[in-house]
Nucleic acid binder design. Structure first.
Lengths: 140, 140
DNA sequence: ATTAAATCGGACTATATACTCCGTTTATGA
DNA sequence: TCATAAACGGAGTATATAGTCCGATTTAAT
């Protein structure tokens, strides 16, 4: 299988977009998120817990506890999330997997690939979580 | 780890580019390829063998055997190789991993991501293996 | 106080990919 | 014809990621 982002990162993006959608509804339990996103509760729970450690989201234990955003969605880009979960290797490492590839000794596709990768990076950087507030209905 | 193409696909691209470079030198052994590309001989061997089955490269057994391109490098795009080895899921599947995402019910980033993905696909489609024939020295 | 509902932590299993090992077959060249 | 060098095939191991399970802890509501 070929992935662009890891499964964990996909779930993180889904979860945060979902929390942004529900941001005025207090704490949302992992149970509810899992149901609405059709993801295993235990796994999304683990993913969200690590996002808490990263400071992107908040959690509250106990009855009526759950998860909520920790930052202003306007100040949270999709790139922030990707970098925190997967790191920046996807934007840096050589497409052909050549360890020596770089500006000094570029691989055959290095210069062709660069602008595309930069465009995707900028798209993610310029897209904030807040842009997906639903007018009617759900964004996911 | 986050990958764009699988390791196998990376090795396939490296191997074919290497064979294009050596295309007038007859059969090249897996041993030599492995040495020059710094890849395990057994693994590149397996990868090349599957490319033989896919019809992209040729092989000859026995002494002074080895691998060589099976097609005109001008008629072989990088996209051909990627599609054969990894399939087209990387160009089709939703970035957020949402199974329902598509033109009818796009995910939040679907429309933003589309043009970037299309650009990368076209770059690979418009880049042939023949473009990397070295004038002086090695392309890899 | 007690109960219920939630996160948290740690350890575990499953699966796919990456990679290795070794014997068999095939062909070449001396 | 015989040794050698190569691909081939099958089966195995290693590792990372994905996903599960369960008990401990925390908190709010009754």
């Amino acid at each position: 299988m070929t992935v662009l982002f890891s499964r964990k990162c996909e779930y993180a993006l889904q979860g945060i977009l979902y929390l942004a959608e529900k941001q005025y509804q207090g704490n949302i339990s992992a149970e509810q998120i899992a149901n609405d996103l059709n993801i295993s509760r235990d796994f999304i729970s683990k993913t969200l817990q690590s996002l808490v450690k990263d400071g992107i989201i908040q959690s509250h234990r106990g009855k009526s506890g759950g998860f909520s955003l920790a930052r202003d969605p306007n100040a949270m880009s999709l790139l922030d999330i990707v970098l925190i979960v997967d790191g920046n290797s996807v934007f840096e490492s050589c497409v052909l997997g050549l360890p020596t590839c770089g500006a000094e000794s570029p691989c055959p596709v290095h210069n062709k690939w660069g602008p595309i990768r930069e465009a995707s990076r900028e798209m993610l950087a310029n897209t904030t979580v807040a842009q997906f507030q639903p007018i009617n209905g759900s964004v996911i």
